[in-house]
Write a protein that binds this DNA or RNA. Structure first.
Length: 276
DNA sequence: ATAGGCGCCTGCTGGC
DNA sequence: TGCCAGCAGGCGCCTA
């Protein structure tokens, strides 16, 4: 579910709630497996450590610890990472609970579909290895025009597929790919290598612009997503095409169309985003 | 070597 | 009302 703006919102929420606090104890709250396996050994290493920072890389959430190790969370489609009062009843699908000190609160990881994960990494090298193995590409706000153009030129795929490729640019998912293509007035099925220089630059800026606006609105909540403080996002109110199949394009009034592309639902305006 | 498809899970919605 | 297919903010593995 969560793409870069949602993950960024979680990170901004969690930063003041976690930084300087100790993870007194960690325990599993379910026996069900997450995408990446829980390792009992790291629970012992993490217990008693203080969180020194909270940051994001692509759609990954990083909790830096005072022993230079790190916890890394991925929210998958339905993951939630929130700080709540320890007395609050455990919500369904809660998988991990971290007791915090000082204060009577807990960091909890919920995930109904369990496509998400929480893992522990021993040192900065191990963390880098995780992102290197994933082939994680540049952050969209730091994507150099020449690098972007080279990525487009080097593939036969549709531009929509390229936007979803985390090795090309990190953090874009299905919603913001569609919204960025609409803003750039580009048909999602256009071959990436066929984009002109101006079109490529328009799209690069549209991606950054849409993501920034979504961050400003605390991301998009369609179903499950909440920030680190438990509050939903507001950017779903700003969608121009995503999830608006059959509704009027806000620019020209033509009905928004939906097709299957790169294995994902893809929404676009057939007039504003011409195929040719 | 690239690109597409499928599987992983659960929950919700819409059509019959 | 009930059932069931289809769909969902993602990724990783397999195959052609």
């Amino acid at each position: 579910m969560p793409e870069l703006p949602e993950v960024e919102t979680v990170v901004r929420d969690l930063r003041p709630l976690l930084t300087g606090r100790r993870l007194v104890a960690v325990r599993r709250a379910s026996d069900l497996a997450l995408r990446r396996p829980w390792d009992v050994a790291w629970a012992e290493r993490v217990a008693g450590r203080t969180v020194t920072g909270v940051r994001r890389r692509g759609k990954w959430i990083i909790l830096d610890l005072d022993d230079h190790c790190a916890l890394v969370a991925h929210l998958g489609m339905t993951g939630q990472l929130t700080v709540v009062p320890a007395a609050r009843e455990l919500a369904g699908h809660t998988h991990l609970v971290f007791d915090l000190a000082p204060g009577d609160e807990q960091l909890r990881f919920r995930d109904s579909r369990r496509f998400g994960s929480v893992t522990w990494h021993e040192g900065p090298e191990a963390l880098e290895a995780l992102f290197r193995d994933a082939g994680l590409g540049p952050e969209p706000f730091e994507l150099a025009p020449a690098v972007w153009r080279a990525s487009l030129a080097g593939t036969d795929r549709a531009i929509k597929a390229v936007l979803l490729d985390q090795t090309v640019v990190a953090g874009v998912g299905n919603i913001y790919a569609d919204e960025a293509l609409y803003r750039a007035r580009l048909h999602p099925a256009r071959r990436a290598r066929d984009l002109g220089r101006a079109e490529a630059e328009r799209l690069r800026k549209a991606v950054a612009g849409v993501l920034q606006e979504a961050i400003d609105k605390r991301g998009s909540t369609i179903r499950n997503y909440v920030g680190g403080n438990g509050a939903a996002g507001d950017y779903q109110e700003e969608f121009r095409v995503y999830g608006r199949t059959g509704e009027a394009c806000p620019r020209c009034g033509r009905p928004v169309e939906r097709v299957r592309l790169a294995g994902r639902s893809t929404h676009y305006c057939p007039r504003c985003q011409p195929a040719g």
